[in-house]
Nucleic acid binder design. Structure first.
Length: 433
RNA sequence: GUGGCUGUAGUUCAAUGGCAGAGCGCCUGAUUGUGGUUCAGGUUGUUGUGGGUUCGAGUCCCAUCAGCCACCCCA
């Protein structure tokens, strides 16, 4: 008796079939190229960590960690790649020299309920500069982000910049007690979803008085030209030493972005950007697009007190994480996926059983010449073979029939234009380049 | 994890509690040396899954799985 098992992926996890994998690999390749160009080095760590490594780094949200046990070993799946980076910094003090610029690509796991662009298994491209508290480092990370998104074909993205101390300063200046500050951040973070009125009522609901709520709401609606926004921030936070320094830091980063050649329309100072803010200590940023809706494509910032937790001292770090699934979703919807760059270049048809050997020898020659080549698997009708080639997105179909064989030639058909010509066997590889 | 909405052919969608349909796709032929366009014909179902109510369920009820939205959080 045979039993058919239920074919079903686990909730919140996805299979990626070839069509999607092509795009995902293109995204990874593009991000890697840009990172390498800025001098970042590759790194990879295990998905599985000791539970004790991950414990205590995520506060209340430890319930969404996947835990597993093997024998007596208590283990967990990483929920991001940042804690693993911290462990590496603590584990290999002699192998890592600061500043450490590294990138890492891989999956992480969180037991959240699935939504668009949010999965239980999700891939991130992480990029960090570890060990130096410098505005140049902050700006370099933002520059990589901007160049990466541009290279992927985005034209309507914007990188929002803010600073953790700007928001905590705002709370102080508005007179919000420190223990209520995180409520303020959370309300601010919803601005894009619920609007000014929504934030206002969120604040009231959270027990924030009108005297405090009014200036907060006024502050987060600031937008426009970068220097104007910075000026307005300085004006409103002038009484708070730390907040003032934070505004100066933002101004410095903006200047450095200009020096690095980041186009002005690529970023904006956004007082409304709150993020989780749980472990950020300095500049924070987030890349967004107007359409289609996806939340953020990536997020990041400076977190000077997390990476050193395994090293026993502070290791200032700035970094970001690209959300691969989110990039994949919006690139698909915007039609930014590259068309044929990854499809095979040539399709060698098999004219008939007796010509199969000639076809396969031709395929072997083309592959040796570095041309990605698909060979037909059986001598079907020529029309059917061409149809397969077309369906796979292959640019050139090759035909070796009796006539061609006699003349020592090969028919090269361009499936895009429909034109075809007969080419000397020895010149085929060259003709396909 | 909590609350809500949704689930029909490969896909996009129809179907008052009464015979499960259409476009696109797919297959065959026109065309025994040519795809994509055209024409002719054909195919497509455990209505997510399992129960229940009913003479009768895609439709109503319960459970379950999955997706989406909000919360939470964030990539």
């Amino acid at each position: 008796m045979t039993m058919t098992s239920r074919a079903q992926t686990y909730k919140g996890m996805k299979d990626y079939l070839p069509r999607e994998m092509r795009l995902r690999q293109y995204i990874m390749k593009t991000l890697t190229e840009v990172a390498e160009r800025y001098g970042f080095e590759p790194m990879q760590t295990p998905i599985v960590e000791y539970e004790s490594t991950l414990a205590g780094k995520l506060g209340d949200d430890e319930k969404l960690i996947y835990r597993l046990q093997y024998g007596d070993d208590r283990l967990a799946l990483r929920y991001d790649q940042t804690v693993s980076l911290a462990r590496v910094v603590g584990q290999y003090p002699n192998d890592i020299t600061f500043p450490f610029r590294r990138y890492a690509f891989g999956p992480s796991y969180r037991g959240e309920r699935q939504q668009r662009g949010r999965f239980r298994e999700f891939y991130q491209f992480d990029l960090d500069i570890v060990g130096v508290d410098s505005r140049v480092a902050d700006a370099e990370v933002v520059a990589v982000i901007s160049e990466s998104l541009a290279r992927l074909g985005f034209t309507n993205y914007r990188i929002l910049l803010n600073h953790r101390e700007v928001l905590s300063g705002l709370a102080r200046v508005a007179g919000v007690p420190e223990e209520q500050a995180s409520q303020v951040y959370r309300a601010i973070d919803k601005f894009d979803k619920i609007g000014v009125e929504g934030v206002h009522s969120e604040l009231s609901k959270g027990g924030i008085g009108e005297d405090a709520a009014a200036p907060i709401v006024e502050f987060i609606t600031l937008e426009g030209e970068v220097q104007a926004v910075l000026g307005a921030m300085r004006e409103r936070l002038g009484a708070d030493e730390r907040a003032l320094q934070a505004v100066l830091d933002l101004g410095a980063v903006v200047q450095l972005l200009q020096d690095l050649g980041v186009p002005e329309e690529a970023y904006a100072v956004a007082p409304r950007l709150a993020r989780g803010l749980s472990y950020y200590t300095g500049v924070v940023f987030e890349a967004v697009i107007e359409q289609p809706p996806i939340g953020s494509l990536l997020g990041g910032g400076r977190y000077d007190r997390l990476i050193g937790s395994f090293a026993g001292r502070e290791v200032p770090t700035v970094g970001t994480a690209f959300g691969i699934e989110r990039l994949q979703i919006v690139m698909t919807e915007l039609g930014l996926a590259p068309e044929e760059s990854t499809a095979p270049r040539a399709f060698v048809t098999i004219f008939g059983a007796e010509l199969q050997g000639d076809a396969l020898r031709l395929a072997a020659e083309l592959r040796a010449a570095g041309i990605p080549t698909v060979a037909a698997l059986q001598p079907d009708k020529l029309g059917k073979q061409l149809k397969e080639a077309d369906a796979k997105g292959v640019r050139y179909a090759l035909v070796v029939g009796p006539d061609e064989l006699t003349r020592g030639e090969v028919v090269v058909k361009d499936l895009r234009s429909g034109e075809q010509r007969s080419v000397a066997r020895a010149a085929v590889a060259e003709a396909l380049k």
